[in-house]
């Protein structure tokens, strides 16, 4: 996500479009990115740290963006 102090003109454009479509009451929209990384092994602390490193150096530009890493279980059937 863009840091709060960074202007997000895309989010603003979305926010301005909402009332036109009948969606009232949204005072702010911020637009971000989401990456889904699938890993073969269970996610231990070391693997999580590798992903954070990936985010810090490549997936996010920490000059203008913040990031969060979250673990989700994937259904075995997929």
């Amino acid at each position: 996500m863009l840091k709060p102090e960074i202007l997000d003109p895309q989010g603003q454009a979305v926010q301005r479009a909402l009332p036109r479509l009948g969606f009232e009451g949204v005072s702010d929209v911020r637009q971000g990115k989401r990456f889904e990384l699938e890993v073969a092994d269970p996610v231990d602390e070391a693997a999580l740290e590798r992903v954070r490193e990936m985010a810090r150096t490549f997936l996010a530009n920490t000059v203008i963006e913040d990031f969060h890493v979250r673990i989700e279980e994937v259904e075995a059937a997929r």
Partner: peptide, 17 residues
């Protein structure tokens, strides 16, 4: 150059889109 951190700061979407 900004992404490489050879120069500080970043370039973002033009404010008028």
């Amino acid at each position: 150059l900004c992404e490489s951190h050879l120069l500080p700061g970043a370039l973002t979407r033009n404010d008028h889109l």
